[in-house]
Simulated assay, not measured.
Amino acid sequence: MTALEVMPLPDRPGVRASGEITAVTRSSWEDALAELAERHTDVSFIELSDVAFIDVSGATALAVTVMDLPAGRVVVERPPSHLPRVLEMFWPNLRIEVTPR
């Protein structure tokens, strides 16, 4: 069984995730994204350097969250290498800035 841990970033608005984002952990991921969206103002950060894998449903949850934000943008930091390609392929005009590993 894969585990996912998501916690607030201590120094800026956003969250840090570690583990894997899959069907098993999707509800925790979606809960964390919902909380992020509630607190979002101008820029939110999602730190993913300790995430080994994010499946398409996890990427979809991220994309839907960003699309539902009224304004601002989301910075995804150091995601798994496949995530930027998936986001660009399915949601090319999202307000997501990706900082690669």
Rank of each mutant, 00 (worst) to 15 (best):
H40T: 14
P70C: 11
S27R: 15
V98G: 06
P13F: 00
L33P: 07
V51F: 00
F53W: 11
P92K: 04
S57R: 15
V66N: 03
V86M: 06
V98D: 02
V86Y: 01
S44E: 01
L94E: 04
L83M: 01
T25S: 12
P79Q: 01
R101I: 07
V76N: 00
D11N: 13
V56N: 11
E20L: 02
S18H: 09
D42H: 13
V66S: 00
A61F: 11
V43T: 14
T2G: 12
R73D: 04
G58R: 13
L94Q: 07
R85Y: 02
F45A: 04
P79Y: 00
R16S: 08
L83E: 01
R73C: 03
G19H: 05
M67L: 15
R12V: 00
T99W: 04
W91D: 06
W91F: 13
W91Q: 07
A34F: 08
M89S: 07
E20T: 07
E30G: 03
P100Y: 02
P79N: 01
P80I: 03
F45P: 10
T22P: 08
L87A: 01
L4G: 08
V51G: 01
L69N: 03
G72I: 06
S57K: 15
A34T: 13
F90D: 01
V15E: 05
T60R: 14
V43W: 02
E97L: 02
D31W: 07
M1W: 11
A34S: 09
H40L: 13
S81R: 15
V56K: 12
E20Q: 06
V75S: 01
S49H: 13
T2K: 15
A71D: 08
E5D: 11
A71E: 10
M7C: 08
D31T: 14
R26W: 06
P8L: 04
P80R: 04
V66C: 05
T25Q: 14
V6N: 06
V15Q: 11
S57V: 14
L69G: 05
V74M: 02
S28N: 14
T99M: 05
T2Q: 14
E35K: 15
H40W: 12
W29N: 02
R73I: 06
P79W: 00
E35Y: 07
S18W: 04
W29V: 06
E5W: 06
P92A: 00
A34I: 09
T22R: 13
I46D: 00
E30H: 12
R78Y: 01
A59S: 02
F53H: 11
T65H: 04
T65W: 01
S57H: 14
H82W: 11
L9I: 10
E97I: 10
V6C: 08
T65P: 09
A52C: 05
A37M: 10
G14C: 06
L94C: 04
E20V: 03
A63M: 05
D31Q: 09
V64P: 12
S49F: 07
D50C: 04
A71G: 05
V98H: 11
V75M: 00
R73V: 10
H40P: 13
D11I: 07
F45V: 12
F53I: 07
D31I: 11
A34R: 14
T22L: 07
L87Y: 02
T65E: 00
T99H: 04
E97Q: 12
H82S: 07
P70D: 12
R26Q: 10
P70K: 15
S81T: 14
V75H: 03
G72K: 09
R26V: 12
P100V: 04
E35T: 15
L48Y: 08
